[in-house]
């Protein structure tokens, strides 16, 4: 057993990532500049070992080669991401050595429901890593096996729909679908993706909506019927159609979308540092090593999707607007 090895996990990961980068034959572009002169600290507002963690490690394993410095994650889970953001905005220096790796979908929707202690303009997302649309799915043994089944059943009774939490893009997708079809669904927040899948499989709820990455991971115990956006993985989501195609709607994609964000003040005070972050972030996407790192980390490479400041701002605005619109349904107020 290799148990006798020193158990420094961050060291492990660093060496592991470096080794894999080397085997991939990456050109190490190190820039002769003052910045960065140390590690970049990244707040991750979710648990270590979760989806964001894996995603972060795969992405930064390539990005760090471009920027010429390491990324050091700090995990601050709690209150649906609020703790991490509050710590980032309240305690971390706005000097471009501190970033936050958040999820623009649910976390921004959260702000619409209950604003944070800091003004929203004080930070902004500048680098979108992936876009993962929400999906609607039933348990493999559910009596409801098609969208038509669901629509027919909902004419007889109000269907219970599992979701990981109220303020989530997938929940909004369902509410929008209900509006379009004139059906009232009863959203049951089952606290987390694991329970949401379990709820649909065991019949606690009639069906569930969830970020599609987690639905793909659930394998053949569930069947996907609808995607709140483009179905880029095809078979993995049972070739389910896009909600807009299926019902002739023009709903913006309901995404879970991970992105790096930075203090507004850091971008203002250190424009050249921010430029370097932006340009290297973009270069990372142009490097085929990124795709390989994603495949190696068992991510869904189809969901890798570059976005810059503009795309992120647009998405954040759309989320805030939708959050405002559905606020009564999401907060019970």
């Amino acid at each position: 057993m290799t148990m006798t090895r020193k158990l420094d996990r961050r060291g492990f990961l660093r060496t592991g990532a470096a080794a894999s980068a080397m085997t991939l034959g990456l050109p190490g572009i190190v820039r002769a500049q003052d910045y960065p002169s140390g590690n970049i600290n990244v707040v991750i507002p979710t648990r270590e070992g979760g989806g964001a963690d894996r995603n972060f490690r795969a992405f930064t394993s390539v990005w760090k080669e471009k920027l010429g410095t390491d990324f050091e994650p700090g995990f601050f889970p709690g209150a649906s991401g609020r703790v991490g953001y509050e710590i980032y905005m309240g305690k971390n220096e706005p000097d471009a050595y501190n970033l936050i790796f958040g999820n623009m979908g649910p976390e921004v929707l959260n702000w619409a429901v209950q604003p944070p202690s800091f003004p929203l303009e004080d930070y902004f997302y500048f680098g979108r890593v992936d876009t993962d649309p929400g999906a609607l799915f039933v348990g493999a043994e559910s009596p409801l096996q098609t969208m038509d089944d669901i629509i027919a059943a909902s004419k007889e009774r109000k269907l219970n729909v599992g979701t990981s939490r109220m303020a989530h893009p997938a929940s909004i997708g369902l509410l929008a679908l209900g509006e379009e079809l004139g059906i009232e669904f009863n959203l049951i927040p089952l606290s987390g993706g694991k329970n949401t899948v379990a709820g649909a499989v065991t019949g606690e709820v009639d069906f569930s909506v969830l970020t599609s990455g987690s639905v793909i991971a659930a394998g053949d115990s569930v069947k996907t019927l609808l995607v709140f956006g483009e179905n880029k993985v095809g078979e993995g989501l049972d070739n389910a159609p896009n909600i807009n195609d299926a019902y002739n709607m023009s709903l913006p994609e309901m995404l879970s979308s991970r992105a790096f964000a930075i203090h507004q003040k850091a971008a203002d005070d250190y424009p050249e540092r921010f430029d370097l972050l932006q340009s290297t972030f973009k270069e990372t996407f142009e490097d085929p090593a990124l795709m390989e790192a994603y495949v190696a980390s068992k991510g869904t490479p189809e969901y890798l999707n570059y976005g810059g400041v503009e795309e992120c701002a647009e998405f954040m605005a759309a989320m805030l607007e939708l959050g405002e619109r559905y606020k009564p349904l999401l907060t019970g107020a």
Binding site: V113, Q114, R165, M166, I188, S191, T331, G332
Partner: peptide, 8 residues
């Protein structure tokens, strides 16, 4: 803590 439905 927050209530499980509306996160109040």
């Amino acid at each position: 803590g927050t209530d499980v439905v509306y996160a109040t």
